[in-house]
Design a binder for these strands. Structure first.
Length: 262
DNA sequence: CACCAGGCAGTGC
DNA sequence: GCACTGCATGGT
């Protein structure tokens, strides 16, 4: 028997795969920030020694180490040769367990935007509103649109305020998003002006661990049209969101659709 | 200059 | 229901 469990974690394939926006890497040392306001946590870790993750329940859960991704990849690989290729391309990808508010707010920022720029905007928001931690709901409820535009949010500025108010006023109940039937959870989010189906699915997948959500952004539209014409997310089963992440990363960085970003 | 980015709301049909 | 357009901003 080999030591390979099939349940590995690749930092370089997971962190820059467009699900989280507060990390950096220098000389092989990854720094990850997670959590809202006072709940900020900072991780420093290298691929050679993952004990800071494995020994800390918070980061263990954050990287979803309790789920067997090897088994999921086996199932996905049965679907089609391309799906298997996407799994083999970056097997160490995992779906992160982020804070629901951080994920929701981050993906409101993400719309019609690119990952590098999203990271810059969120970093500036954390500095301006969060003193380093991710801005709390309260700090954004009364945010001035003006200030948000100066941070680079553009037309998304009012959307952020709308979202913060909806959470503050109880129209969006973050705890309920984890357990509501998925259609109801999506509907609860999409009542807000500025949250559509794609942002809702990302918030639910990356912030509420709703693995059945299958966000359809420009990359996934290319993937489906090219590799799975005439089909939909149902072919990937109840954990379609995980398949989506393998495909997204494969499409973006695998060289099929002239990748340009950094 | 044009076109794009982990989209969405508004409008017209 | 679907197709089309404007939108802030920065990069190619």
């Amino acid at each position: 028997m080999t030591a390979m469990t099939g349940n590995e974690l690749s930092l370089k394939d997971t962190l820059p795969s467009g699900q989280c926006f507060r990390f950096s890497e220098e000389n092989g040392v990854w720094t990850v920030r997670a959590g809202v306001g006072e709940n900020l946590r900072v991780l420093r870790v290298t691929q050679d020694d993952l004990s800071p993750i494995m020994d800390d329940p918070f980061w263990f859960g954050f990287f979803d180490m309790g789920t067997d991704y090897g088994k999921l990849r086996e199932q996905f690989s049965e679907i089609s040769p391309v799906m298997k290729q996407a799994c083999d391309y970056a097997p160490g990808i995992r779906i992160l367990n982020q804070d629901p508010w951080e994920a929701l707010c981050s993906f409101v920022v993400s719309q019609n935007n690119n990952i590098k720029r999203i990271m810059g905007i969120i970093s500036r928001m954390c500095g301006f509103y969060g003193a380093g931690g991710f801005p709390t709901v309260e700090s954004l409820v009364d945010a001035r649109e003006d200030d948000l535009r100066k941070l680079g949010l553009g037309f998304r500025a009012p959307y952020i305020v709308n979202t913060a108010r909806a959470v503050h006023d109880g129209e969006i109940r973050l705890d309920a998003l984890k357990t509501l039937p998925i259609d109801q959870a999506r509907a609860m989010l999409m009542k807000v002006k500025g949250i559509g189906p794609k942002v809702a699915d990302c918030a639910l997948l990356f912030g509420c661990h709703r693995l059945d959500c299958f966000p359809m952004d420009v990359w996934m539209k290319r993937v489906m049209a090219t590799f799975f014409p005439g089909q939909d997310k149902d072919i990937f089963g109840p954990c379609a969101g995980v398949a989506q992440q393998y495909l997204f990363h494969y499409a973006r960085t695998g060289g099929y659709f002239n990748y340009k970003e950094k």
